[in-house]
Design a protein around this nucleic acid. Structure first.
Lengths: 152, 152
DNA sequence: TATTGTTATACTCTATAACTATA
DNA sequence: TATAGTTATAGAGTATAACAATA
């Protein structure tokens, strides 16, 4: 049988550039995840906001922006959309009336659960090349990188 | 001294979602890399094309699109820009005149070298939380994921 | 004064389809 | 017929600044 012909470019030095690998892996991840989310009317970013809203932690819009690497104004648009669809609510903090906690409605919470299952399945298919130990290692290293973000 | 206050959202279940971690790490990576590339008039994507063109491998536009997860039409625009600036050339393949090999000019090659140094420095700063062994592990796992991309 | 959320705007990136020239 | 590259266009995502309400 014919030998597996890997991409010629994968042999070059810059093919091991971590930033480039990150970008390629992320592009694949977004494409596959958006496909998995399409049936729920969600995309990667709206799903992330919904999942955060469905947690017990009652994130503020500011926290969502920081956590998801979004500008606060982008969070406004995402929350507007989810709120119009009855999936999340803005709850004004009585102690500081500038602040909105974003919480999932009952409908939003169950949609989040369904979507989460689909996302997990798509990921397992996509990351089948890794053992579960390797996936755990990858996840832990990425978490360290993300948490250690330098100030500037 | 005050305890380190991690992001509240980092305690939630979806904070360990590999896709989300990938997206957050990539957002940080793109932002930091674009800052490092600004003085060269490059951005992440144009740098990637230039670096590929500066390799010995003479990539075609099709290969660049596949490798960088770009649509072929996006490669046209990126190469147009680099070509206008005298950094790369399109060389028609005499054996198949539909195909262009993208090769760096002398000026493009030296800019690529300078930019590569800046990108590496920015990365070392950004990934200082990882040991070099951990970085090697992260790189290898990402490469496996990227190469194993399922058909659909 | 500083911060949260909001509006407005422009720019970059991505996705799709149709076209041409070669094969 | 099929493939490499191109053009055109629309949509999604990102970046910036200015503003109102609240602290």
């Amino acid at each position: 049988m014919a030998p597996l012909q890997l991409d010629r470019l994968d042999g070059t030095a810059f093919a091991t550039d971590p930033g480039l690998l990150l970008a390629r892996a992320n592009a694949d991840s977004i494409a596959a995840t958006n496909r998995a989310l399409a049936e729920f009317g969600l995309r990667v970013r709206s799903y992330a906001v919904l999942a955060a809203a469905a947690s017990a932690i009652r994130p503020t819009q500011r926290e969502l922006a920081e956590f998801l690497r979004l500008d606060p104004s982008q969070v406004v648009a995402l929350v507007d959309d989810l709120e119009r669809r009855g999936l999340v609510r803005r709850e004004v903090d009585p102690a500081d009336r500038r602040v909105n906690a974003i919480v999932a409605t009952e409908e939003g919470a169950s949609l989040s659960t369904l979507a989460s299952t689909a996302v997990t399945e798509a990921r397992e298919h996509r990351l089948a090349a890794l053992t579960s130990e390797e996936l755990a290692t990858l996840t832990e290293l990425l978490a360290r990188v993300v948490h250690a973000r330098p100030a500037e």
